[in-house]
Design a protein around this nucleic acid. Structure first.
Lengths: 226, 226
DNA sequence: GAACATACTGTATACTTAAACACTTATTGA
DNA sequence: TCAATAAGTGTTTAAGTATACAGTATGTTC
């Protein structure tokens, strides 16, 4: 661990947290300066650099309000907002896990029109909890028993570990693979000798991790087994 | 209340929610345009105006990333949503499907002492309906995606057709195989080259068919996927 | 058939913001 | 006492961003 924050750095950090809680987005340098009484936005800039060096925030370069708190987990609250909001908009009150079919390019997985139906299984049946069921296309994961048409239970997160089965978005296509990372280099392994691993250099190619696989369901849609 | 969102407006809204969950701050007009495939940031601007008119977001004027979700407000609402949903499920789901672990020699499958627990899924989720879930031992069916530890949903019947996945009792052992019959001769095929088919002559050897496989569930008992 | 909303393309402009550079002052530890 | 760190002021600039204005096309409603 690095050194603790100075009193002034703590003030800046507290203001960031307070702003994000109050407004839903981080402050600018100018806003920090005004709140803390600095006459120059550069004072805020240098405080942010110090906070980043000490690991309590992350700065996204050249991005307005590009401040992230790695410690905080807004994932849960916002995730449930995703799943409850469509329910509020739609007249029906579906229970259970949404089943996601085809995912159109450029659109988020949980968009309402992707939802085929609901599977009457509580999210907590799986650990960590499942957020949706993704209908699997292709046989690239057949060697670990994930076949065409299966429903993959997915827990939404972008924090994944080596060896996990991940749902990733690559060139706007959603794919299921085994994840491995070495520095900038990510390898997505199929579990089928007919499919080559996919290599991604995170510096040049974007990779969105949609979640990790936490379960599989086959059958139940009228289709025969085998 | 105002009119519901159009499909496209829902896409934009979903992207905002996703971005806030993923990065901790809302997107810019340009980021929305890029994600949704617009060539002009003005398309995003006008969608944001529409979303604000319909009350699902609030726009802070002349502020970068100045988008707020009024729904995101209270921790209470989200917490109660989380806590009430499982409760609703418990009420609606009476018992669910019994999960059968080890089956002792000489005893019927559905004997009470074999029941590990219950899976909160209605029998009718599968077709034909499932009567119980059998925990699979061994990898003899791995080529059709039935692995060690999986739960095989079983419909109780002794009328089976060629090619079906059956639960059979052979020498008081319960086994899962693919069924094929020619006159007196029954062949039980494994789906794994390491296992040889089992030949049974019904005139000399008893074969009890316990049921047919109608589905598979993996995960959900705390075990990791993959 | 006119009026209106949705859903965009394309361009332009002014404000917002991040971030570099130059410099000052005080405090701390070697 | 020297060097490093913290905590600033003040200015500048390029990039990021919101937002207005002018169109086009396609539906839906009265």
């Amino acid at each position: 661990m690095s050194r603790p924050l100075t009193a002034r750095q703590q003030h800046v950090f507290d203001f960031i947290v307070k702003t994000m809680g109050e407004f839903g987005y981080p402050p600018t340098r100018a806003e920090i300066a005004k709140a803390l009484g600095f006459r120059s936005p550069n004072a805020a800039e240098e405080h942010l650099r110090a906070l980043e060096r000490k690991g309590v925030i992350r700065i996204i370069r050249n991005t307005s309000r590009g401040i992230r708190l790695p410690n905080q987990e807004p994932q849960e609250a916002l995730d449930s907002a995703v799943t409850t909001l469509p329910a509020a908009n739609v007249e029906t009150l579906p229970t259970g896990l949404p089943v996601i079919g085809e995912v159109a390019a450029g659109s988020p997985i949980l968009a309402a029109e992707h939802i085929d139906r609901y599977c009457p299984l509580p999210a907590e049946y799986f650990t960590p909890k499942a957020d949706y069921l993704l209908r699997v296309r292709g046989l690239s994961m057949k060697d670990i028993g994930i076949l065409e048409g299966d429903l993959l239970a997915v827990h939404r997160t972008d924090r994944v570990r080596d060896g996990q089965i991940v749902v990733a978005r690559l060139d706007d296509e959603v794919t299921v693979k085994r994840f491995k990372r070495q520095g900038h280099q990510v390898t997505l392994f199929a579990e089928n000798p007919d499919f080559a691993p996919i290599e991604i250099d995170l510096r040049f190619q974007p990779l969105d991790i949609e979640g990790v696989g936490v379960g599989v369901i086959r059958g139940g849609n009228g289709q025969a087994l085998g």
